[in-house]
Write a protein that binds this DNA or RNA. Structure first.
Lengths: 209, 209
DNA sequence: GTCTATATTCCGATAGAC
DNA sequence: GTCTATCGGAATATAGAC
């Protein structure tokens, strides 16, 4: 019996198809909104198979949440923990992060919604072991402040500022569109400009007095 | 038969108790996560009464959503449409808005989640007729830019910046806490400083070159 | 491993007594 | 208006044939 050797682990296996379908449905509709029937349909298989591979809806859900978190955080780490000079690090982070989010609007809302519904469960079971270490970033900011190259800021607030400016406009897109009275096309144009706008706004906000 | 005259409309009536309970449950758990039984329990009445006053779960939900939106938007309008000078308007808006959100964390997430799940329904049925008019704000920004008192910025992006900086840290509180490695107490302290931090950051970001 | 059929639980909604 | 009891459907989960 010949076995495939160099394919990625169980490429189009049933288990993988189920997981992919569950990933899509759960991230779009959340735990309560998702139905097992819909996941089965999307995977092109029968409902009973879901329970054969994953024992329950909850187990399947947990698998998806863990995968989402495990994928989301390392991307942040890579930039945060690098030894790039501060301004370039900020610029790259904004560019990279907005690029990521604009391709995938649903994930951030999914993470935030589910983390708010079960915070304890998250911190105990789902949170990845390898968290980004912000110490390098903190030190860099303090050095730049001490050297007078940027104005005094709390580096923790700076991180919050930057992440807020990157993520929120995509989360609140329909809301912002309503508030500003824009057409979908105008709103899309505006969001396409965010990389540029956020970068210049943050750097301006850091200019020494 | 004497009738009460100067009480606020049906103060502790059954209908009001139902609505209050539904408001709490729906905003915390969303349409799918909320159960009629739980709402009835919280209101201290029977499940059948929910259907007596509001015909269906959907109707009850709609009543809550409309009330939430009707309350949330005018507060924004009041500040946005005022004729205060720009810098003071921004300062007041941040102060007012963060104050509002920090007292009520669940509402923004509720609005954003539900608007993303049923965008069309929102724009057709739920959206308040009286939207905030950002034109005054736009004009003010353009005048300040023309006078060289602030650096050139697209006023629409500026609004998005400010709202993002106000709302997101409270939405993403557990996430930020995890990312920064803070205890709940440290995180609370940090959020208490947001009014101050956001104001100085935004004003610094607007300084002319 | 995959399917059909069925058991079981839960939930929204209604009927009807008071 | 308010309650108890119950219906009917939907959704999760299991049994059992292939």
């Amino acid at each position: 019996m010949d076995k495939k050797e160099n394919t990625t682990p169980d490429q189009d296996s049933t288990e993988q198809k189920i997981f992919d379908a569950a990933h899509e449905i759960f991230t779009q509709k959340g735990m309560d909104g998702a139905k097992m029937q819909e996941i089965a349909d999307k995977a092109g298989i029968n409902k009973a198979l879901l329970h054969y591979y994953y024992r329950s809806k909850e187990k399947l859900y947990e698998a998806v949440v863990k995968a989402v978190m495990a994928k989301a955080l390392p991307t942040v780490r890579q930039v945060i923990e690098s030894e790039l000079p501060l301004e370039e690090k900020i610029t790259r982070f904004i560019d990279f992060y907005i690029g990521l989010i604009s391709k995938n609007t649903v994930i951030p809302l999914f993470i935030i919604s589910e983390i708010n519904k079960h915070p304890d469960h998250f911190f105990e079971n789902v949170m990845p072991k390898q968290l980004p270490q912000p110490e390098i970033f903190f030190r860099q900011v303090q050095e730049e402040v001490a050297a007078g190259r940027i104005r005094p800021v709390d580096p923790r607030h700076l991180i919050i500022h930057i992440i807020s400016l990157c993520i929120f406009p995509f989360l609140g897109k329909p809301l912002m569109r309503m508030l500003l009275g824009l057409s979908p096309e105008e709103m899309k144009k505006l969001l396409d400009q965010r990389k540029q706008e956020v970068t210049s706004f943050v750097l301006a906000g850091l200019k020494p007095l």
